[in-house]
């Protein structure tokens, strides 16, 4: 069992940071909706408040790690130009997608949307984290601030979902492969 370094980075970008962000996002939305509603009965302890503060900071960290590894590590491999006369486009995912009418939209619509919409995620969640750090349980008495934090977190979830969906589909149609091969497990032939 082996994996290439490019494949490993793509995995870390999408299934590591990105997928973890999506999971964390659903938790934050539920917590904000239930516990920080002005009508919520259960009191918020300082421990609850600290937990959500750390949770938001980790989410913001994951969002930034996702877009930065995507834009500055994986994307350059994706968009690399094939030298003239290249017989196989397997190492050039963008060119591979664009070479076939049945896959070109994965680039022209999917990647073109994904590469920009993904940046709404760290911007939105950094704001949500900053507002929560500042106001904490006071959000219960500032319902409009809570609405904004909830709304931006929800949109970040949607944007991360769009980016994640297209990332997965693009990598399925034209995988980012190459670089050094890392041997994970040496199997035995039967």
């Amino acid at each position: 069992m082996e994996i290439t370094t490019r494949s490993l980075w793509t995995l870390m970008h999408g299934m590591g940071f990105g997928a973890l962000y999506l999971l964390a996002c659903s938790g934050a939305l539920v917590e904000l909706w239930r516990r920080y509603s002005p009508n919520a009965q259960q009191p918020i302890t300082s421990r609850d408040e600290s937990f959500l503060r750390i949770y938001f900071v980790v989410m913001a960290g994951l969002a930034w790690l996702t877009v930065l590894t995507g834009a500055y590590i994986v994307y350059p491999w994706y968009r690399a130009a094939a030298p003239p006369g290249t017989a196989s486009l397997a190492g050039f995912p963008q060119r591979l997608l664009m070479s076939n009418p049945s896959t070109i939209a994965w680039h022209s619509l999917g990647m073109e949307w994904k590469e920009h919409v993904a940046w709404l995620v760290p911007i939105s969640i950094t704001m949500a984290a900053a507002v929560f750090i500042k106001y904490g349980r006071n959000l219960k008495t500032h319902p409009q601030l809570r609405t904004a934090v909830l709304g931006f977190t929800l949109v970040s979830f949607l944007a991360a979902g769009i980016a994640g969906f297209f990332g997965a589909m693009i990598n399925k149609n034209a995988p980012v492969e190459g670089g050094q091969t890392i041997h994970l497990v040496h199997g035995e032939s039967r």
Binding site: T45, S46, W119, L120, M127, V131, K134, T141, H142, L145
Partner: peptide, 29 residues
């Protein structure tokens, strides 16, 4: 278990939060 704490002062102005929210909208746009 930490004890429930009464709401801190609601006097905290909303300006900081508003600044972060509007700036995030501008940044996204």
């Amino acid at each position: 278990m930490s004890a429930p704490v009464a709401f801190p002062s609601a006097k905290l102005p909303n300006g900081s939060g508003a600044a972060a929210i509007l700036a995030a909208g501008i940044g996204a746009f």
